[in-house]
Amino acid sequence: MNRSSHLLIGFSVFCALVMALMPLPLSVEPFRPDWVLLVLMYWSLAVPHRVNLGWAWCTGLIMDLAMGSTLGVNSLTYSVCIYITASNYQKIRNFSLWQQAFLIGLFLTLYHLLQFWLNHFLIDIYFNPQYLWPAGAGMVCWPWIFLLLRKYRRHFRIR
Rank of each mutant, 00 (worst) to 15 (best):
F14K: 01
F14C: 08
C15D: 00
L17T: 00
M22T: 14
P23N: 05
P23C: 05
L26R: 11
V28D: 02
E29F: 05
E29A: 13
E29H: 04
P30M: 12
P33C: 12
V36D: 04
V39C: 08
L40D: 04
M41Y: 09
S44I: 07
L45E: 06
A46S: 15
A46V: 07
V47R: 15
H49E: 15
R50I: 14
V51H: 09
V51N: 04
W55Q: 01
A56R: 01
A56V: 02
C58W: 12
G60D: 05
L61K: 01
L61R: 01
L61M: 12
I62L: 12
M63I: 04
M63D: 01
D64A: 01
A66V: 00
G68D: 05
S69C: 01
T70Y: 08
G72A: 03
N74S: 13
Y78T: 02
S79H: 03
V80A: 10
V80N: 05
V80Y: 04
I82N: 03
I82L: 12
Y83Q: 06
Y83T: 09
I84M: 09
I84V: 14
A86Q: 15
Y89V: 08
Y89D: 05
Q90P: 00
K91A: 14
R93W: 05
N94S: 13
F95H: 11
F95T: 04
S96W: 06
L97C: 07
L97A: 09
Q99N: 13
Q100H: 04
Q100Y: 06
Q100E: 09
A101Y: 11
L103Q: 11
L103C: 10
I104N: 03
I104K: 09
I104M: 13
L106W: 07
L108Y: 06
T109K: 03
T109P: 02
H112A: 07
Q115E: 11
W117K: 03
W117G: 08
N119V: 00
L122P: 01
D124H: 14
Y126V: 13
Y126H: 14
Y126W: 10
N128H: 15
P129D: 11
Q130H: 10
Y131H: 08
W133Y: 15
A135G: 05
A135S: 15
G136Q: 02
A137F: 07
A137Y: 00
V140E: 05
V140I: 15
W142Q: 08
W142D: 08
P143S: 08
P143V: 08
W144E: 05
W144N: 04
W144A: 13
L147T: 13
L148Y: 11
L148D: 03
R150Y: 12
R150T: 15
K151L: 12
Y152H: 09
Y152C: 04
R153G: 14
R153Y: 04
R154L: 15
H155I: 10
F156G: 08
F156M: 06
R157C: 12
I158M: 03
I158E: 07
